[in-house]
Nucleic acid binder design. Sequence first.
DNA 1: AGACTCTTCAT
DNA 2: TGAAGAGTC
Length: 480
Amino acid sequence: MNTARHLVWLRADLRINDNTALAAACADKDAAVACVYAITPVQWQQHDVAGIRVDFELRTLRALEKSLDQLSIPLLIIQTDDFSGIPDALSRLCEKHQITAVHCNIQYEVNELARDAAVKQALASKGVTFHSHHDQCAVTPGTVLTNDGRFYSVFTPFKRNWLARLEAGAIRLLPIPIRRRHRFAESDNIPAAIKGFDSHVTSDITLSWWPAGEEAALERLTSFVEHGLKRYDEQRDFPELTDNDGVSRLSPYLAAGSISARQCLNAAFNYRHQHGSTKGVEQWISEIGWRDFYKHVMVGWPRVCKHRPFRLETAHIPWRHDENDFQRWCDGQTGFPLVDAAMRQLRQTGWMHNRLRMVVAMFLTKDLFIDWRWGEKFFMQHLIDGDLSANNGGWQWSASTGNDAAPYFRIFNPVLQSERFDPKGNFIREYVPELQDIRDKSIHQPKPSLLSLYPEPMVDRRMVKDRVLSHFRNLPSLTA
DNA sequence: AGACTCTTCAT
DNA sequence: TGAAGAGTC
Ligand SMILES: Cc1cc2nc3c(=O)[nH]c(=O)nc-3n(C[C@H](O)[C@H](O)[C@H](O)COP(=O)(O)OP(=O)(O)OC[C@H]3O[C@@H](n4cnc5c(N)ncnc54)[C@H](O)[C@@H]3O)c2cc1C
């Protein structure tokens, strides 16, 4: 008798726990199942995927291959330059192995949706069915709507509705599928590296901060829930507490899909059930809410995928395109210690603390008045957790071009932010060795010195607010 | 998820 | 002299 053969196309869901597409493909206990992953270097280049993110993903795949093997599910690899080659590559794969159904979890970005539509069509012409599942968000985009049936553009009411939906029923995590009885292929080799995507981060930091795979993700979650969750609200704004579980550092695992947002929420809800609610738990649940929120916004307003501002009236703001100033920001040579420490953290570790992402993004877009899209791109090129919706959301928040963004007149002062959130200068000293010997408060704004290698502040903050106001003050109000 | 200035009122 | 609150952007 012929057993059914199903394919799971893995993308941003590199796990066997709580994976909707994988579970669907395995629902038929007798079906033989294979997974496939597509390497698309030219597309990645166009999407500014960071080398360290590719490296992380390849390492994740190696761990995943082992756990899939336990289920008697091979992991296949296809490679095409960009998305346009995928319909053909998948069709041929299905033909070769007589696969009749392909499952995947939806990615909501514009290019990814177009890619999937083309794949569906190509497969249909070969008699192969294509099933795309909602999986990435804790609550499915399009199902959290305002009373008049529109997507929320403001977080607070969104969150109220979103949370009510989650709390209405228990979160049910999908189990690991049972082992297959039949196997129709062997796993392909997973390349150790992809040309053009070298990680900019040293291997010792990579190994200590970013162990890859599902198990590593679950360990990170467990450690954070145990040590950080309760006091998250008090610790989350202090970058120096990162190594003490001040924040979860789960973002790369969520971006690669080594862990699901549902698994994270489930852990938080369980903790709340056992130990009672704290501000910390509620705040962290809220952060997972932001992740869902920005994905929902992207579905409701796809223009944010296309370098366009959410607030259309800000489309013609004459942002500066000054290469030299931009380069100093990229290099962490602005002369503002906290900004520079943050940018160097990004380059040294592939990650940056949330408070600092806001500080450096606000500095680039407001103090330097440089185009937020330049910063968005640079972040994508260096972040291990680079994610279009969260990154775009964060940049448009900072630039005041987004939905529910920072009001244009509410500009961070990087020196005050430094005094408040790195009071002892511990974080600055960790990443800016030139300032290592400054032990007192002056580290937030070092006195200019001819002997110092550290640069003087690159901008006179007294003119910053006037410039921003002059461009934002008289914007027409457009809606769409 | 701010910063700044000005006023008031208690030392 | 400065803490606290209000108003402004
Ligand atoms: C300018 C800017 C750019 C950003 N770019 C990205 C990005 O490319 N990828 C990314 O995952 N996050 C991005 N963020 C959001 C946030 O900074 C990171 O998710 C967070 O710092 C990751 O650290 P963590 O896992 O320890 O977070 P935690 O504080 O432990 O939060 C848990 C999880 O909640 C989610 N989350 C938290 N805050 C946000 C947020 N503001 N928006 C969306 N999701 C959030 C993340 O998935 C995170 O892993 C950006 C923020 C800003 C201001």
